[in-house]
Design a protein around this nucleic acid. Structure first.
Lengths: 289, 289
DNA sequence: CTTGACATCCAAAACGTTTTGGATTACAAT
DNA sequence: ATTGTAATCCAAAACGTTTTGGATGTCAAG
């Protein structure tokens, strides 16, 4: 049913080779022949079989994107925005995007293994990096090109791009201080995430730089979901000695927190969101031509 | 560098055929041989080349998912939740998910064409259906298996699954009426979307069934984004003669509307969200074995 | 000893493309 | 006439797997 090279070749009484080379624009096929090939290929609705091309060319024109999910259904909307950007840019360059969702854990490593060894993708995108991230060591070891969105503890030797969370925290805290707040709470994210560590360091630094003490009771850990944002905010604001301002590690927990505030008829302060970028400055994935 | 079948074959002094059949579990290879093959394959870290398998088997074990985006970066978080479910279930069945993002329009058709003709996928998922959806006619014509999330004007002849928006609207309006509202506004979605038409019909029906008139001035069209939700809510509540309750076609616009309400210190009513499902009852995509 | 049945193995073809390494022709220069 | 050169074309190999259609050997039944 689908049109193959040999169908075009038969139609025009040419060899498959010539048809292939005509379509690829090689100079060893006469202009008239090229025209004939182009015309009938278009007329017959020929589109090359991607699988065969990949096998022969030994590249898939596909980049892999593994979305970390907590639980079977949940996924941070943050990733949907990211994906739109990735998808559009990939399409512009004629790349496919192969996505997988997997919860962090032992089987995550299996998924990466299969993607790498089975040669489904030419390279990968790694998001939500951990301080010591097994995915990155695995990719480095395998020699598969990749770019990380986020850093690791020793973030050298590979290309990454990241939000400058430290600057974000600094600006946010200074903003709160300027508003007169001295009792600032912090709804943090899981400690094994690198961005969590970076923001925590920044938090302590800017606090002490302003002669404020960090009250450990006001620092709680959530799992990045709206649910814990809500719950932890409730706990913080239910304390006898309670903070007057709250900082959140991500949007979703902040949204949960704001919902909780409204429910209790507490007014949330204005939201404050940054997206300053920084990069490793290293060359990123090779994109040919 | 990567391990191939022939490497294992050479190592064990067997033919490629036997190694392949041993791994596939055929009965025409002796138990001892199978053991040897399995052991060395594992030891050498063999993972079959997905591309070669696909070419030979003539199936890709991949399903395509084209996310409609408005603008270059925007994507409804609704799709990220959907995608988590799709991704996990696909992984469970050893399927890959190939995603593309494309804005509705002429080039959308091109993307579908390429996916279909190039044999990248075995089947597709279609979301956010239009009343007369060219993607569906194209897929039917091409004979490519697919499932639609959403219906079309003539929604027969193909498998679909959909939220029962009509029932949702009915329950929501009855709820508002029970609260004493008679002046109900409706922030609708683009009319070419099927779910928009279904919900609009349901709205008019439940209104007239309760002897309420639909004020056309209170029915506005948004583009499903938070932005228009906010703007249209402002317009509605700024009218001299204004509605006392508002219905929104989707979460995002409702969120924008609630933000606008808070900003003006209007209290939003409790939110009300349904997810009743309905299906075509038709067999869905063939998944082998 | 022959025949058949069974167990175990494998060479070759096939999937659809691109690349390699010529083959053929025409024509100009010697 | 011979040689060289350029312009076109193509058969065969290659990518890595699975499937097809035997081949070979062993052993029991006749």
């Amino acid at each position: 049913m689908p049109v193959r090279l040999k169908d075009i070749a038969a139609q025009l009484d040419l060899s498959v080779t010539t048809v292939s080379r005509a379509l690829a624009g090689y100079s060893d096929v006469s202009p008239q022949t090229r025209e004939r090939v182009l015309a009938t290929a278009a007329a017959m609705g020929y589109v090359p079989d991607a699988t065969a091309q990949r096998l022969q060319k030994q590249r898939t024109n596909t980049i892999g994107f593994i979305v970390p999910t907590f639980g079977p259904r949940f996924s941070d909307p943050f990733f949907s925005e990211l994906m739109a950007g990735i998808g559009n840019e990939a399409a512009r360059r004629n790349y496919d995007v192969l996505i997988s969702t997997v919860a962090p854990g032992p089987e995550e490593s299996e998924v990466y293994n299969r993607h790498i060894k089975s040669r489904r993708v030419d390279g990968m995108l790694v998001v939500r990096t951990r301080r010591d991230d097994p995915r990155i060591s695995k990719l480095l070891e395998a020699g598969l090109p990749f770019v990380a969105f986020g850093r690791t503890e020793t973030s050298s030797g590979y290309p990454w791009i990241d939000t400058d969370g430290a600057t974000g925290v600094e600006l946010a805290v200074q903003h709160l201080i300027a508003l007169g707040h001295r009792n600032i709470g912090f709804v943090r994210s899981p400690e094994f995430l690198m961005f969590s560590a970076l923001r925590w360091d920044a938090f302590r630094q800017v606090m002490s730089a302003n002669d404020l003490t960090v009250n450990p009771q006001w620092v709680l850990h959530g799992d990045l979901t709206q649910g814990t944002g809500k719950a932890l905010t409730g706990r913080l604001l239910g304390m006898g000695q309670r903070p007057t301002a709250l900082l959140y590690d991500n949007d979703l927990m902040a949204l949960g927190g704001m919902a909780r505030c409204r429910k209790e008829a507490w007014l949330p302060a204005a939201t404050f969101r940054l997206s300053v970028l920084t990069t490793s400055g290293q060359p990123s994935m090779l994109i040919p031509r």
